[in-house]
């Protein structure tokens, strides 16, 4: 078998690191999968309340954020190709764009959460407990938990991308050893994919 040859001198195995990343992404999906189960059960139990609460969310900001993440997924995918074409400058430029879009997403999220908090809606707030039904409390609780955990993944993704960009800049990530950048891209796609599920669940289903 061909893995024989390179284990002797060099332990690096691009295929292995990619399998590892895919498996890790699988576990991340299961992590959010637990939350999707919780969401489905409570949606089933409180259909009316979930409908009422969902109206409160700003679909426009949600849609803008969806488009932003889709574009950033494209830019990072293109950057892995430009790395193969040995266009280092363009690769770094595309990674920069990806990071900026990620930050814009977080800023949008900040204003969205801020508006809700201004209205007195946050987990455990008095206003939420007194003025809303139990189903609505659950909806907003899950909204904060799931979008919050997603935002945390965005931040982790940004750090990984910056780390990969630094290595591209130094040249230790190059067309022959592209695994780190490709895995950063895979992770970013995961973050995008989870948002693709979150957006309809919270904003679109009425």
């Amino acid at each position: 078998m061909e893995q024989h040859a390179h284990t002797q001198h060099d332990h690096f195995d691009a295929e292995a690191s990619k399998i590892g990343m895919w498996l890790f992404i699988f576990t991340e999906l299961l992590l959010f999968g637990g939350l999707f189960i919780v969401y489905s059960v409570y949606r089933f139990m409180n259909q009316e309340a979930f409908h009422l609460a969902a109206v409160e969310l700003n679909t426009t900001i949600g849609a803008i954020n969806t488009v932003l993440l889709l574009v950033s997924s494209m830019t990072i995918a293109v950057s892995t190709t430009t790395l193969q074409l040995k266009k280092k400058g363009l690769t770094l430029f595309l990674l920069g764009i990806t990071v900026i879009i990620g930050i814009v997403f977080l800023v949008n999220k900040y204003f969205e959460w801020g508006a809700k908090i201004d209205h007195g809606i946050w987990p455990g707030s008095e206003h939420l407990k007194t003025a809303f039904s139990q189903g609505e409390i659950l909806f907003f609780g899950l909204y904060y938990v799931m979008t919050g955990l997603h935002a945390l993944h965005i931040i982790i993704g940004l750090i990984i991308i910056l780390f990969a960009a630094h290595r591209v800049y130094k040249g230790t990530v190059n067309e022959n050893r592209a695994a780190l950048l490709e895995n950063a891209g895979l992770y970013w796609h995961l973050v995008d994919l989870i948002w693709i599920f979150l957006f309809p669940l919270f904003y679109l289903i009425h």
Binding site: E28, G124, G141, L142
Partner: peptide, 27 residues
Amino acid sequence: PVVGITLVLIALERIFGVGVFDPALGG
């Protein structure tokens, strides 16, 4: 991962009182 997220929910429940498993809040 499933128990991981469950433990996260318990921690968030303790810190913020989200209500996901709290019968008083519909959980």
